[in-house]
Simulated assay, not measured.
Amino acid sequence: MKVTGQDRALNEELVQNARDLAGYKAYIPNLDPKVAGAEFVIGAYHYLWQVEKSFRISKHDLTARPIYHHQHESIEAHLSVVFAALAVAWRLGPSRGGH
């Protein structure tokens, strides 16, 4: 919506821009472009499915609960414990409760 005083109108330009971008997903890496160029970022994106699979495994197999931490250190500590447990379960193998 464009609001000018009492006047209100649909922002057609913004609507068209949203339609043009529908279906696209953008990632903005926090990497130094001099160190990690476009090829590196694109290559890392192709392995994103493995990261997502790890999260699905950790949530399912370890019955991970939602994280309600608010401080960066608490979040990192929680994820470290979850992934350490995932690594132990993976190492134990299927006969011992892991994969």
Rank of each mutant, 00 (worst) to 15 (best):
Ser80His: 08
Asp7Glu: 14
Val3Phe: 02
Glu52Ser: 04
Gln71Trp: 01
Ser95Gln: 11
Gln6Ile: 11
Trp90Pro: 04
Leu21Ser: 11
Val35Trp: 01
His46Ser: 12
Pro66Trp: 09
Gln50Glu: 09
Glu13Leu: 03
Leu31Gln: 07
Gln50Asn: 08
His46Arg: 12
Ser58Val: 13
Arg65Met: 08
Ile75Tyr: 05
Ile75Gln: 01
Arg19Leu: 11
His69Tyr: 05
Pro29Arg: 01
Val82Gly: 01
Leu48Ser: 10
Gln50Ala: 12
Gly93Lys: 02
Gly37Trp: 03
Pro33His: 03
Glu12Ile: 06
Tyr45Ile: 12
Ile28Ser: 04
Lys34Trp: 01
Ser74Leu: 11
Lys59Asp: 13
Ser95Trp: 09
Ile75Ala: 05
Leu10Ala: 07
Asp20Leu: 05
Ala22Pro: 01
Pro33Val: 00
Ala18Arg: 06
Glu39Arg: 05
Ser58His: 06
Phe55Cys: 13
Asp20His: 01
Ser54Gly: 14
Glu39Ala: 14
Tyr24Asn: 08
Leu14Ser: 04
Gly37Val: 00
Arg8Pro: 00
Trp49Ile: 10
Ala64His: 06
Glu73Phe: 08
Thr63Asn: 15
Gly93Glu: 05
Asn17Ala: 15
Asp7Pro: 00
Glu39Ser: 12
Lys53Pro: 00
Gly98Met: 05
Val15Cys: 06
Pro66Met: 07
Gln71Ala: 10
Asn30Ser: 10
Ala77Thr: 09
Gly23Met: 01
Gly5Ala: 02
Gly43Leu: 03
Leu92Gln: 08
Thr63Glu: 15
Gly37Thr: 03
Arg96Gln: 12
Leu62Arg: 02
Val82Arg: 02
Arg91Asp: 12
Glu73Cys: 06
Val3Glu: 01
Tyr27Gln: 04
Ser58Pro: 06
Ser80Phe: 03
Asp20Trp: 03
Ala44Phe: 09
Ile57Ala: 08
His46Cys: 06
Lys2Trp: 03
Val88Cys: 07
Lys34Pro: 01
Asn11Met: 01
Leu14Thr: 00
Ala18Trp: 00
His72Thr: 13
Ile28Cys: 05
Tyr27Glu: 00
Tyr68Trp: 10
Ala64Leu: 08
Tyr45Gly: 13
Ala38Tyr: 02
